[in-house]
Design a protein around this nucleic acid. Structure first.
Lengths: 220, 220
DNA sequence: ACCTGAACACCGTTCAAGT
DNA sequence: ACCTGAACACCGTTCAAGT
């Protein structure tokens, strides 16, 4: 309740958790995760690197706070639609993907951390709640959460890796094309246009539909 | 065909790509991805760090070769079962998960790279092939590959993060328990036993079933 | 041709000392 | 109480020089 920031009377601290996380997210968007170092972040905050350790015990803790902040508001997406559990779950999954896409390397940051903050737990509680209230068992609801969340994060990880934010060529679809045209992989060759398509929203919606239809079958 | 390893007559090179990748995988299993540095790998190979760069232009290239090696043989899993596309796809997904689980941090290595080698492309071609031959369209087959692969990798990423290989407490289920018992999150509280269950195979099979049932609905 | 030795430009983290 | 300065123990990568 009063760790490093009680209402003190000395000169106000230049740093606090909220401003540090915000600046870290700005730096992430500008330069990407690989360029987000404690020293560069300290520079952006006008401070020495060591000072950050009064607010975050490790860099991993900072990344966790960033992930938690990124998914703020996502839990509320479960209230859309009018009582259709399938649409509510879809909205939650879409909101999670959108929140991760909103920051460069957002999925990598999220996948690399395990926040137990209110935004992250609120999302999980919301999704599990929608399914329990729709009549699914506790086991089914919890496992559906795993399936939807893991698919969404895994998908967004691929999406952000495949579509580099600005400059450099997408080095990936290119090498895939070469390799596939080399001869083997007849099935990949036939489906190359879809595989290298950048319409990731369509890919995402397809996978999400599979999961929801599968859940509909569980419901009987 | 003859870059750094022609059949020369001088003293044989101490290094080659295959031995380097194998030693790197051994080191990964012993110490984990964070401890896998070019210097430590060089040490294990009895060589200086700089020497590795004759065989791999960057550390990322080495990691890609490791990922490619990890999924060797996975493509063959599509031949199991007797013509049931659903069982073939399930076998491919299970084989991928098993291959990633076979190495410490295997999913992290795989998710962080994008191999276009024969093992990785063979897996994709195999899965797409099973579906195309079962009558799915090219679009459906390609998108199903995305869905199954992203779910499997996302799931295994979580699994390996949740179950620390040997020592240290699972710091994760613990903090989740605290936070959930604090009051809010009634739905998480009700499903806590399932959420903190370590039966990841059951979780995986549930999600996989959803995807396959969803695909069955597409088939009509 | 292959590897060493040494350097370059960094990292995350700690901690006495200042204010 | 909060931050600086400086250090510790590392990183990935490059490249002249040796053999």
């Amino acid at each position: 309740m009063s760790s490093p920031s009680s209402p003190t009377r000395g000169r106000p601290a230049r740093l606090d958790q909220a401003r540090t996380v915000q600046t870290a997210l700005d730096l992430l968007d500008e330069s990407g995760l690989d360029a987000l170092t404690m020293r560069r972040l300290a520079d952006a905050l006008g401070v020495q690197a060591g000072a950050l350790y009064r607010y975050f015990a490790t860099k991993q803790d900072l990344l966790t706070a960033m992930a938690e902040r990124m998914v703020g508001g996502v839990a509320g997406a479960g209230l859309a639609g009018d009582g259709d559990w399938s649409e509510s779950v879809a909205c939650l999954a879409r909101a999670l993907r959108t929140a991760l896409l909103a920051h460069r390397d957002g999925a990598r940051v999220f996948a690399g951390t395990h926040s137990t903050g209110p935004n992250t737990l609120g999302f999980s509680d919301s999704l599990v709640g929608v399914l329990r209230e729709a009549g699914f068992s506790d086991d089914e609801a919890a496992r559906a959460l795993y399936a939807v969340a893991n698919f969404t994060v895994g998908h967004t990880l691929e999406e952000q890796a495949a579509v580099p934010p600005q400059g450099e060529e997408p080095t990936d679809a290119g090498k895939l094309g070469e390799a596939v045209r080399a001869g083997m992989y007849p099935h990949l060759a036939a489906t190359l246009p879809v595989l290298t398509s950048t319409d990731f929203t369509a890919h995402f919606e397809f996978g999400l539909r599979l999961l929801l239809d599968g859940l509909g079958a569980v419901e009987q």
